[in-house]
Structures are given as structure tokens and as C-alpha cells.
Simulated scan of single mutants.
Amino acid sequence: MDRLRVLIVDDEPLARMRLRGLLADCVHPGATVVDEAGSAAEALHALARLQVDAVLLDIHMPGMDGMALAQRLRDQPVAPAVVLVTAHAEHALQAFEVDAVDYLTKPVRRARLQEALVRVEQRLGRSSSVAPPVQTVDVPTLVVSDRGRVLRIPVSEVVYLRAEMKYVTLVTARHRYVLDDALSDLEQRLGEAVVRIHRSMVVAKSAVRALERRAPVNGEADEGGETWAVQVEPGGEWLQVSRRQLPQVREVLARAG
């Protein structure tokens, strides 16, 4: 079955980049981003020259907002399916008024986006009762942004992830990347490949090399003036382990031994 042709409309470049990355991971149905638009005017221009199955449409934009654009698209003879995307949930009722296929709240999760694509396919009359073919096992990846580019980082290259302010830093053997995903979401996506060592840090199990009592990390210590820390490779960096997560880290080392 053909991949869905999707137009992303959002005035925030980072939000468009995140949606593009999430769409790259969607299957059954899959989707191809045919263009991006930073305003309703740009979206209308793109729709005039492109064949589009679905529009991922942010509601809050300067000028004509997403709700007004959705209403305008609804009045067209052949209209693409509209999936509204917003950081606010108060417009859910209006989404039905403009005949939106689905309504997603930010931060959008891949599984929820996949559900929206299924609804788009059903709206277009493409849904099939045939079970999807068995897929070959792909190399697990994380989608990250690097200087405006969307990159897919193999999970095998992940050393650790650290939550810092509103972003998460992903550290690999050669690079550091800044993600806009929540640490809990990334931890869930990485699954058994990682272990949480601290409320703000997740480490790849394959990267853990040692567990020791050491001098305080980031100024934190217990009553003995020390703290537990794990050494990760490559790099040999020592990372603090909280008391709560200590049993899990010991189990990882025991299994590795």
C-alpha cells in the first residue's frame, strides 16, 4: 500500500523537525513528508501544487491560525485529512466542528501519531483487513536533530542520556545531541537496552563497566562523604547513581559478568 503523503504545518521549526522524525518511524501505514509550511499562507501554496493525503496542522500560528485553515480546507471539493496538533487541549471540541480526523497534544508521541495515521487511512478509504507482512528486524534507532538536520542514531551507539532543563542530552562515543523528547519517553523507547541510574539520567547497559564508591559527583554525597557512581565506556566517564537505582545497576553488572 502507498505511503501517506503528509504536509506538516507549524510556525516552530523545531516542532516541524520533531514531527518529521516521528513520521519516519511510523509504519502501517507509513508516511512521506512532501513539504513543510511555517504559516497558513505557505500551507495553502503547498497544497495548490502538491498532492497531499493529510495535513499535520498546528492550531496556534500567527495570522490565519490552524483552526481557520482547517475550516477553509473543509470547504474544498477534494480536501486532505486534517490532524490538529497543539500544546493546549481546550480546542478538542472545535476539532470535531472542522471535521478533523484526530487531535494530538504536544509533545506528540510516536504511538499516538501512528494511531492518527491509521484514522487518516480509514478516512481515505484505504484501510485494509489484511495483516501487515512480517517485517525484517531493523537496527533500532533514535531520531535526533543536529544543526537543522534530522539524524537516526543507532541505539548501539548510545552511551547515556541526561535530562537538563527542558531538553535531553544524548551522548554517543563521538557526538552529543540535544533532543526535545522527555527522558521518560526516550527510556520507554529504548526499553531493555538502558537502565536508569538517576532521576535525570539513563545509561546504556552495554556501556556500564564498573560500579564504585567515589568522591561526590556534582557536590552530592551521603553521610560517608561519598557517592556511588558507574563508569561508562567509551570515554571512561563516571556518573552518579542514586540509592534507589543502585540495585538495578548491580543487576546489570552481575548479568554482564
Rank of each mutant, 00 (worst) to 15 (best):
M1N: 06
R3M: 13
L4M: 02
L4H: 00
R5G: 06
V6T: 03
I8L: 14
I8D: 05
D11N: 03
E12W: 04
R16Y: 03
M17Y: 10
M17L: 15
M17I: 14
L19N: 09
R20C: 10
R20P: 07
A24Q: 03
A24T: 08
D25I: 08
H28R: 14
A31M: 00
V33C: 05
A40E: 03
A43V: 03
H45W: 06
R49G: 11
L50S: 11
Q51S: 13
V52M: 07
V52K: 05
A54D: 03
L56Q: 01
M61A: 04
M61C: 02
P62K: 00
P62A: 01
P62Q: 00
G66A: 11
G66D: 06
G66W: 06
A68E: 15
Q71D: 15
R72G: 15
Q76T: 15
A79Q: 07
A81V: 13
V82P: 03
V83P: 00
V83I: 05
A87P: 07
E90C: 05
H91K: 08
A95Q: 02
A95T: 01
E97H: 08
D99R: 12
D99W: 09
A100D: 01
D102H: 01
L104N: 01
T105E: 11
T105W: 13
P107E: 04
V108G: 02
R109E: 15
R109F: 07
R110M: 07
E115V: 10
E115H: 11
A116N: 00
L117M: 00
V118D: 00
V120C: 00
E121G: 07
Q122C: 12
R123Q: 09
L124E: 02
G125C: 08
R126V: 06
S128R: 10
V130N: 00
A131L: 14
A131R: 09
P132G: 05
V134L: 12
V137H: 09
D138H: 11
D138M: 08
V143M: 13
V144F: 08
S145T: 14
R147T: 15
G148Q: 09
G148M: 08
G148C: 13
V150Y: 06
V150A: 14
L151F: 06
R152Q: 11
I153Q: 05
V159Q: 04
L161N: 02
L170V: 04
V171G: 05
R176V: 04
L179V: 08
D180F: 12
A182Y: 14
A182L: 15
A182V: 08
E187D: 14
Q188G: 13
Q188L: 15
R189G: 09
L190C: 12
V195Q: 01
R196D: 09
H198W: 07
R199V: 14
R199E: 10
S200V: 04
M201I: 14
V203Y: 15
S206G: 14
E212M: 11
E212C: 14
R213A: 02
R214V: 11
R214H: 12
P216W: 00
V217D: 01
V217L: 04
V217Q: 03
N218E: 09
N218D: 12
D222K: 01
D222R: 01
G224H: 05
W228T: 06
V230P: 10
E233H: 04
P234R: 02
G235Q: 00
W238C: 02
L239E: 03
Q240M: 13
R243K: 10
V249F: 03
L253C: 00
A254H: 05
R255P: 05
R255H: 13
A256L: 15
G257E: 08
G257A: 15
